[in-house]
């Protein structure tokens, strides 16, 4: 009988205990998977903004439409620029007030809203090119200031770093939880099957022979627990994404993303490895016969 067959026999005889362990492990992994899901989506937003290549050049008060149109034509001809849109002060006011019922904003005169040139770069334009275009625009006398939205991307990057740090801490919590749950389960299982272990040792089974099925059971608990967690998180994701797709798209600037398959595989493999290591560690001292 192979160690796997013996592990299956052991799991069958203690299936309730193993099911409880898998569930407990999955709870820990759900926390980690949710944190990773947030990180993945924040990263997607940051990436989208970093690659969007947008800039707004705000024109000085008093800049005529004619000057603005000349600058628009000149910038549109520059390499790496996909399009330029001139937004006059009145149009800017209308855009900001659209869909809002803010009396304070509505009371402001059109001059309070600066005219701007909204520049969109081509997809292949990199960050350096975006900075060059911004510098070029900023050097024009009619341009008061240029915003490339880099500060927003940097803020998102900071959020992302915090998210990654939180996920790292959660990983440690998950590691502790998995090791503790699996080790406790295996120790309990060992106690309940102490007769079997005692007999095995008395008839000449080596420690590795005795440990084998328990380590496989631990690995299975870790892997199944993480797989169950991924299933639970995916179900939650499908419900939320299906119900709030529009809102999420608006918020994230694109559709929400689930965990990439490489991350899922890593989680399952890590769960299995942690479970095996926890089982191995808990069996260092087998029943002494």
């Amino acid at each position: 009988m192979t160690p796997v067959q013996r592990a299956i026999r052991g799991t069958r005889s203690e299936w309730r205990l193993h099911a409880l362990s898998v569930f407990s492990v999955s709870v820990a992994f759900v926390c980690l998977a949710l944190a990773l899901l947030v990180v993945v989506n924040v990263d997607a937003v940051r990436d989208a903004w970093a690659r969007s290549g947008r800039a707004s050049a705000f024109l000085r008060a008093g800049t005529t439409d004619g000057v603005a149109r000349e600058i628009e034509a000149a910038v549109a001809a520059a390499p790496g620029v996909r399009s330029v849109r001139y937004v006059a002060a009145a149009a800017a006011r209308d855009e900001i007030l659209a869909g809002r019922s803010d009396a304070v904003l509505a009371a402001l005169p059109p001059e309070a809203f600066p005219a701007s040139l909204e520049v969109t770069l081509t997809d292949d334009a990199n960050a350096t090119r975006a900075e060059e275009v911004a510098r070029l625009l900023g050097a024009l006398p009619a341009v008061e200031s240029v915003d490339t939205y880099r500060s927003f991307t940097e803020r998102l990057a900071a959020v992302l770093r915090a998210g990654v740090a939180a996920a790292g801490l959660l990983s440690l919590v998950v590691l502790g939880a998995v090791v503790s749950v699996v080790a406790s389960t295996i120790r309990l299982s060992l106690q309940r099957r102490s007769d079997e272990v005692e007999v095995l040792k008395l008839i000449g089974a080596t420690d590795d022979y005795v440990r084998g099925p328990f380590v496989i059971e631990g690995a299975a608990q870790g892997a199944l627990g993480s797989l169950l967690a991924v299933g639970i998180v995916f179900s939650l994701y499908a419900i939320v994404a299906g119900r709030f797709d529009g809102e999420l798209s608006l918020l994230l600037g694109g559709g929400p993303r689930f965990l990439p398959w490489q991350l899922v595989v890593t989680m399952v493999v890590a769960g299995g490895a942690l479970g095996a290591a926890a089982a191995w560690g808990s069996l260092r001292k087998l029943l002494t016969v």
């Binding site: 079997e196 007999v199 040792k201 008839i203 089974a205 080596t206």
Partner: peptide
């Protein structure tokens, strides 16, 4: 690590049988 190989040469019968009941 040699003890299991000793025990493989010895058959043991106990008062309490030491069978796996299930």
């Amino acid at each position: 690590e040699s003890v299991p190989f000793l025990r493989r040469n010895i058959g043991i019968v106990f008062q309490d049988f030491k069978l796996i009941g299930s």
